[in-house]
Nucleic acid binder design. Structure first.
Lengths: 222, 222
DNA sequence: ACGGAACCGTAACGTACGGTACTGTTCCGA
DNA sequence: TCGGAACAGTACCGTACGTTACGGTTCCGT
């Protein structure tokens, strides 16, 4: 979500401060939960006092890190040019592949683990931030494509949100929960492309208008 | 998974010890992460020394709790009697509804959060235990039904595992990650039934043999 | 009845960590 | 050149919690 507060904070950060957030991300990925203020200060070569001056407290530092990382993922503006069945399928595949790359990246895994841990306690809103910039952000980005497909007579659904949730399930399946729980699941680039194409074709089999779903895609669904 | 070690440990626990594990589950659900040994001892009306004597250390206590809870979910043996299109659909719906109930229950949410937090550190294997008794256990339980459906000529797929993963995605969609991240998503009984039916029909639309997929189900897919 | 094992309640210890205070150094503008 | 702001480095404080130790009590077998 293009939350103004998010952007404002991101803009206000100096390169030195961004380097600190990089250190936080690095520690999160490598050390898991040993994310102490002292470790951050050591890694970023700054003093703990500076950390507290810049970010207030530990939660402020984590929040800034999550928001900054989220702002980096916000790339990829799939422009809706002339839309036909093939370009729609292609856009869906690009969305799915991009999403799979994100959720299988070590950074995303570490970030979601941290946010889920924090969601257990009531204080702080890391879970909400991750949700807004992950699940809901991609939903908003995909919606225009779905509605354009419907207006072009290529897709058939009542509610874009419901349709998106089916797409989400077909793409993600069990990948995210398995990775979060520590399963040694490895997704190579070709696997991501293959899974993305399969998910897109399955989605089209469910929501594509029959006349636009070539029979040759059917085998890919299995 | 019917891991012998799991069962052996479950059998060996006295009612008094199971009451302690109940206290742990209760604290996990209510207090989130404030799961201290002192709090467990207070709630279970036992001494901390007894906790350490019975379970070794904190990780042992948590592991025993997870394994015990997992053993309780292992219910529901969908017997494969004469299988026709309707009974297959019904069994799929029962699986989906049961699964949705489990993952949306406070206990499951708290348990998965704990396991994910632990998966961040390398020590202990709570994540693996939850995976084995959650994701993979239900996969093993559903596989016979899928293969029976294929043998009966009702389903069409190459790999049962791949087919199951699609089913998993269609059922779970974004529910689990949203709940884990603290989203205030509420699933009523009727919503679970409706979502389960929709997921089953979508799965049949993808993997059911055409002659067995009545046209009247199509509207439910949207 | 007696002895010992199991167990409760609690105090105590060690450690890890969030947060604060202080000192010395660097750097920049006047 | 001078003065002060910004910051690194470190010592320090308070607290929370895992773990251990110990005195007192209950319960069970003999």
């Amino acid at each position: 979500m293009a939350d103004p507060a998010t952007d404002r904070q991101a803009e206000a950060l100096t390169p030195r401060q961004l380097a600190v957030l990089d250190a936080v991300l690095g520690l999160m990925v490598e050390k898991g939960d040993q994310l102490t203020m002292a470790a951050v200060a050591r890694r970023a070569s700054c003093s703990k006092e500076t950390l507290y001056k810049w970010f207030g407290d530990r939660d402020g530092l984590l929040t800034a890190t999550v928001q900054w990382q989220a702002s980096k993922v916000r790339a990829g503006n799939y422009d809706r040019q002339k839309l036909d069945a093939l370009s729609l399928r292609d856009s869906l595949i690009r969305f799915a592949a991009n999403w799979l790359e994100v959720i299988s990246s070590p950074t995303s895994i570490a970030l979601n683990r941290l946010a889920i841990s924090h969601a257990a306690t009531r204080e702080s809103n890391l879970g909400g931030i991750v949700l807004a910039n992950g699940r809901f952000a991609i939903g908003e980005r995909l919606r225009p494509l779905l509605e354009a497909g419907r207006e072009a007579g290529l897709l058939d659904f009542d509610d874009p949100e419901t349709a998106f949730r089916s797409f989400f399930g077909l793409v993600g399946r069990d990948v995210q929960i398995r990775l979060l729980l520590g399963d040694a699941l490895k997704l190579s680039g070709v696997e991501i492309e293959r899974d993305a194409a399969r998910a897109a074709d399955q989605f089209l089999a469910l929501h594509g208008r029959a006349e636009h779903v070539p029979q040759k895609w059917r085998p890919l669904l299995r």
